[in-house]
Design a protein around this nucleic acid. Structure first.
Lengths: 355, 355
DNA sequence: TTGCGATTTGCATTCGAATGCAATACGTCT
DNA sequence: AGACGTATTGCATTCGAATGCAAATCGCAA
């Protein structure tokens, strides 16, 4: 055994012990010593607006480079009370919508010097642990693309951890939130479908606790009412591909009264729907059945689908979320803000005249 | 109002300063004072194997609960030299293969008490910054599902940051790596295709610097040679959906000699291929053209595709990667290890007898 | 050369938890 | 009761960088 075997040469005092195990890193003291200045000076050279003379900065940076010194973010965080970490919470690992968001958020955060501490949850109660972890790591904020219970949210509030919800909002509390309001596009879409002669509609909802999904369907319902469309049936989905197919089956149980147009609360279900329609019900899209969705995920535009959908401006939404969280990391006690973006219709080939 | 209203018995000297701004968190000192013990005792109560009597533990935990104390991971990291952070580096935001991996890795890491610091890169030179950041945050390890240059890798080595590559390997260095060897499945697949009468093959490569993609195509090529298949054409792709379609066009430029079977270095290109074949070339899959891929991403099994592909056991691979990084976070100087997993053929409906 | 204000620099302390070592407390045995 | 061994506990220090304040230095004018 060769390990644990280096404590037998105690003579040397303290200074030249650099060829160390476990790659001991240079500290600001090491740099200070090499440059012949104080540790504070080193610290200042790495702080943007600090008062340092050009000469000093030069010497320190040279020494730092020589030792490959990089400030220790952990130690810095301890003293400044700012970790520069932002917890990002995503759920729905099954929903390919989140990866796009996640990557964008990561990019935007890194542009403002914040790092992503990633958490994933399947169920709501897992969020409990996430909050504890985030708290332990002193995150400067939390961006949640997932549901948080009222109690969980209150806990974050009490600990003054800024929270921004991404595409989630709630009726039981006021929060910071970024989302997309598809009202105008829904109206346009429904108008077009009605003009195309559709009179029987099927709507596929999202999971029950999801306000965004709920709201989308509500907007659709209202628009349909405005057009005096009465034959509207809603069925429940859960945002997954499979649930889209299952929901379609439900809607088409009686072929005589099956809808001629289907609106899904998200794209993934719409894809499931299209596939089920084609491969099981042997319907032609869009000739036999029109289908539309929400989100505008990349896949929806694959040649097999070319889904007509209402896209969210994900890029701008991510920027907004990051701007909001960054501002609150800086100045925690800002009032809540809602940033609402317009959607846009992404023209596909999944809707047509009613058969 | 019943809250925040217990400071009107002022006799005690310094202890009642709790209703603080900016949600000042309780520290181990606060807990110690409340429990009437030393700070060290508190610390020990939160350390698994420490020497604490039952009585003490009980008192401390009660006080901790009352103050909602949670140890500060940042401070702990500073003294223990262990951040419990693992950097995870993913690229190819366009490739839906990574999200699945990312979510699995996150899960597995959290099971062993490690948190994910997420980094995304588009190009290789961005990795430079990632390494600096990871270093600043004292990560205990790095799992890379992305390419790292030799120099970048050496830098990590020098700093003794353990690295595990996920599905990436290199010829110019020995590393820790987890990957899937599809040899057996490639052989079986090619044998089947040849039995089906295919004699003209098209292969779509991955990006040039990607050894995994290269190796896949190499295995295919060798298997074909063993079967005396000589009409094999390779074209270049970059793992994206679009590049799959473009590559197919290239392969089918001359309809007379177009391949009857196509093997793509990943699923995403295979999907692009299928869509291009159907919607532009008006070919039937699998009757006119057989297509196969690699990875086994979720989408490949959507009804529109039902791709025959060679799946990687992502779950086990993620577990392995996490186990490797966790072990090396504990004991850094372990020798490099390669964990190789078998693939599995995922039966779809995208291959058939040659036309 | 002296003096005064404006910069720079260093000193000393701080953040919150972990831990080696010494000091207790506890238990057991004679 | 006395002696000794073990299990707990507390003290003091440490990790690495940031920062308020005081000391030192500089520039410039009189």
């Amino acid at each position: 055994m060769a390990s644990g075997r280096q404590k037998d040469n105690p003579p040397d005092p303290a200074s030249d012990s650099l060829p160390l195990i476990r790659g001991r890193r240079a500290t600001s003291y090491d740099v200070a010593r090499l440059a012949g200045v104080s540790q504070s000076a080193v610290s200042r050279c790495f702080k943007p607006g600090a008062s340092v003379s050009g000469k000093m900065r030069e010497r320190v940076l040279k020494a730092a480079e020589e030792l490959e010194y990089q400030p220790n973010a952990i130690a810095r965080g301890l003293i400044t009370q700012r970790s520069n970490l932002v917890a990002v919470l995503v759920s729905g690992r099954l929903n390919l919508y989140y990866p796009e968001v996640l990557f964008r958020l990561t990019d935007e955060l890194s542009k403002v010097g914040l790092r992503v501490l990633l958490f994933t949850v399947d169920s709501e109660d897992e969020a409990e642990g996430v909050i504890e972890q985030a708290w332990q790591f002193q995150v400067d904020g939390l961006i949640s693309a997932s549901h948080l219970s009222r109690a969980q949210y209150d806990l974050l509030q009490k600990r003054s951890i800024p929270v921004v919800f991404f595409n989630r909002y709630f009726t039981d509390r006021s929060t910071n939130v970024v989302y997309c309001d598809p009202r105008a596009q829904v109206d346009a879409l429904i108008e077009r479908l009605v003009d195309f002669g559709h009179r029987r509609f099927g709507l596929i909802r999202g999971p029950r606790d999801n306000m965004v999904g709920f709201e989308r369907i509500r907007l659709v319902t209202e628009a349909l009412q405005r057009h005096q469309v009465t034959e509207v049936r809603e069925v429940q989905g859960d945002f997954t591909y499979d649930s889209g197919g299952a929901a379609l089956q439900e809607l088409c149980a009686d072929p005589a009264t099956r809808p001629t147009a289907i609106i899904c609360a998200n794209d993934m279900m719409a894809l499931g729907c299209m596939d089920e329609a084609r491969s099981v019900l042997e319907l032609n899209i869009p000739d036999d059945l029109s289908i539309a969705g929400f989100d505008g995920i990349g896949m929806s535009q694959f040649a097999s689908y070319e889904l007509t959908t209402i896209r969210q401006p994900i890029g701008r939404m991510c920027q907004a979320a990051v701007a909001m969280i960054a501002a609150r990391a800086e100045l925690p006690e800002q009032s809540n803000e809602r940033r609402v973006f317009e959607g846009a219709i992404l023209e596909g080939r999944s809707i047509a005249k009613a058969p």
